[in-house]
Write a protein that binds this DNA or RNA. Structure first.
Lengths: 147, 147
DNA sequence: AATCAGTCTACTATATCGGTATAGTAGATG
DNA sequence: CATCTACTATACCGATATAGTAGACTGATT
């Protein structure tokens, strides 16, 4: 399940993508417009800044703005930044590989074999879907993944 | 991410699937063989029993056994029983539909539109993969999903 | 310097996860 | 029918994650 963090992040980024010049927009304005607790949103934006998704400007006339065009920001990147790896088990994660403590032999693990397919399916969709697609989907209510 | 509960459940069920007549096997023996804490495993098996995946026999010579053939038990069913719905957001779940509290309008939610694709992809794989496939994958180290 | 606006640290409440303890109930067998 | 055996049920516990709050600090304008 996606956390609220990830959903808030997507809504805030979508807001910026719909803003002229992609910002800058004040944290407070973003929080009000998207109904996100301000201090919570602060932390979310800070992390997206660190990851190079956003940039910030301090002082009067400042705020947050997109650091890249919406079609250059993937949904996968946002979800990974907020909720961690997409993979259902660490041993099939591309971005955060790790062993399962309880696994006696990774090469003969049926769970791993099946979950590898699941990871590939999820990543296949979310690495292709961009912030631009998200904004488009908000308008149409639809999104169709193309292999 | 899958919880340990779900992985333990799959290992225990796989063990039963590999046992003559699919059981009965004592909780204690399952726990030892699959290196699962016994009391924790009890709770897992109890839930699988309630869901009709397993049946139990009390008294001497009793234990747990599969209630259906391994190819009639899907991985999706196991994961849902242990970790809840497969969908990344409740508003696209088939088995546990619910609104997102923060969502102002479900019909124009881009997150929902994209996550619908993700849910379908996950369910597409895990509703087709069975306990029999899991056992097979343990032997070969491979599993290939067929659309 | 005053002010504005993002940054950082610390703290809280609640829930979930992984696991344990204790008590109880149902069935098989001598 | 007593009594094992073995599953069932409830309550509890510590660690971690989630969601959110408070306040001080740093940097940029004007």
């Amino acid at each position: 399940m996606l956390t609220r963090r990830a959903k808030y992040a997507m809504r805030a980024l979508s807001h910026l993508a719909r803003t002229p010049n992609y910002g800058p927009v004040l944290i407070a304005d973003l929080a009000t417009a998207e109904r996100i607790p301000k201090k919570f949103l602060e932390r979310i934006l800070l992390e997206l800044n660190r990851r190079g998704v956003l940039q910030s400007r301090k002082g009067r006339g400042g705020g947050y703005l997109l650091n890249r065009a919406p079609d250059q920001i993937t949904i996968a990147e946002i979800v990974r930044a907020m909720d961690g790896p997409l993979a259902p088990v660490p041993c099939v994660s591309q971005t955060a590989y790790g062993h399962c403590v309880e696994c006696p032999d990774e090469r003969h693990c049926g769970i791993r074999a099946i979950m590898q397919e699941v990871r590939d399916a999820i990543a296949g969709i979310l690495d292709k879907a961009t912030l631009a697609d998200l904004v488009q989907a908000e308008r149409t209510g639809r999104y169709r993944h193309r292999a």
